[in-house]
Structures are given as C-alpha cells and as structure tokens.
Amino acid sequence: MKKRGNIRYFLKEGAANFRLHRIMTTAAVMMLAACFLVIGTFVMIVADINKTIDDVGMQNEIVIFLQDYVDDASAEDFGYTLMDMENIASVTFVSRDEGLKDFSQNLGGDEIYDSYADDNPIRHSYHIIVSDLNGVEDTVNMLRAMPQIARVRASIETVNTFLKFRNVTMFIGVALVIILALIAAVIVSNTIRLTTFARREEIAIMKMVGATNRFIRGAFLVEGGIIGLLSALFAYVLLFVLYQFLLVPEMSLITLISYVSFSSVWHLFLIGYLVAGMLYGLVISFFTIKKFLRV
C-alpha cells in the first residue's frame, strides 16, 4: 500500500520531468534507440548466418564421388578402405542407380530417371560422417589424394566461409554497439543531469522535509526507466520495419541465404529490448544522480 502510493507518485514525477525536458529527452531516446537498432540488426544478421550454416548441411558430412572407371563391385568394397581411415565414423554407399533415383526425385520426375537409366551420368558416391569436426580438413585432403576419388564435396568449406563472415559481422557489431552505447550513456546521463540540475531547489526542499536519498532518486530513476523503455519500443518498431520490409525481400533474392523470419523471434526481441532498455536507463540515471545526492 505504502509502496504503491510512492510508485504512482514517482511515475507522475518522472512523466512530468519528461515533458519538461522534451528536446533533451527525445534526443536521449533517439540515441538509445539507434543503439538498440544496431544491436538488433546485427543479432538478426548473425542469426540468419547461423541458420544458413545449419541449412547448408550437416556440417560433418562429406560426399565423395568415385571415378568413372571404378566398377560396381570395387565401388562397394571401397567402403572398407574408407572405414579404415582415421576420423571416419560411418560411411553410406550410394550407388549410381540410387544416385540417379535421388537426383530425379529431387527434380520431381520419374521421366528423368527413365531417360537417363541407360546412360547414367551419376557416379558412385559415399556419404561420410566424420567423428571429429576439427580434423575434417585433414580428412578432406586425404580423400582428395586418393586416385579412385573423382570429387570431394564437403559442406564444411562453405560453412567455414560463413563462419568467417559471421565472426567479422559479430566483431563489427560488438564494436559499433560499444561505441553507440557509450555515446548513448553520455546523452542519457546529460539528460538526467539537466533535469536534476533544474530541480536542485526542489531536491533541497525534499531533503529539508526529511526525504531519504532513496526517495529523491525514485523520480529520477523512473525518468531514466521511461527513456529506456521508449527507446526500446521505438527501436523495436524500426527493426521490424527494416527487417521485414527491406532486408528480407532483398536477401531472399540470394537463394543461398536462409533467413530467420521476424515473426518467429519477435517476442524474444520485444522482451530483450524492454528489459535491456529499462535496465540501461535505470543504471545510467542511478549513477548520474548519485553525484547530486552526495551534498
């Protein structure tokens, strides 16, 4: 009961402060929102890259195609040679015939199978699962060196490219976010300082009538919290528009990249943004007014 009365009062005070210093506060909200927007954009991009990596295939699978001259029997026997190698967990033989069936099924027509059955262009292949991903490059190199093998297809290489891309993206994202967060902190802090300064007379009166520092802090914390929450909401809407209407149509042109749909993560973003926004606003205002209360 007691607490609730105060919270209502603080909310009123915080909102009043907010109105009184519209311009400064709006600047703070914009800056913080920009910060959140950049974080969100990078998180989404990284999520998309991760999804792409997953979709590119089982990361530890290698497909090898045997030379044309290898006949059916030795092709089947080749599995034992493979199993004897290091770092190979399992091998699955896909004969030329099965390969053609898969191929034509993927393209959606038995006619393809029928027309190529007599002159099958597909090679014998093995789907190999490695036991240790870290050694996959060595395994690929060893396979490449074998004369019976015509081609080695390892999705790991594509994956590696994406991984590198993701790391660079994350690095840029983190660096940008740190810079923006610092700028935002300065702006939010200045806003709170300004409103605190404008009300130092009021603070003195509050102290005179027996207000604790905690009480005085209350209204200012609420103000910081409001700035944080508004920024979060604003950034959220912007991110949605940016991602859904600009980024996705653009990206879906590049068929290689899979994208995470915003609708599947919107709640995570909303909650994350609101919580982060409020905490950020509270922390900044807490440290800003700490100085003012020491008198």
């Binding site: 009365g5 105060n6 209502r8 009538v209 027996g210 207000a211 009480f215």
Partner: peptide, 14 residues
C-alpha cells in the same frame, strides 16, 4: 503533501 509523502505514507493518510 511532500513532507509526509517522503515518509512513505499511503495516499489516504496523506
């Protein structure tokens, strides 16, 4: 009201 509000009093008491 401020002088009594700072003591944490409820609205009715205030």
């Amino acid at each position: 009201a401020l002088a009594i509000r700072v003591t944490g009093a409820g609205n009715r008491e205030i």
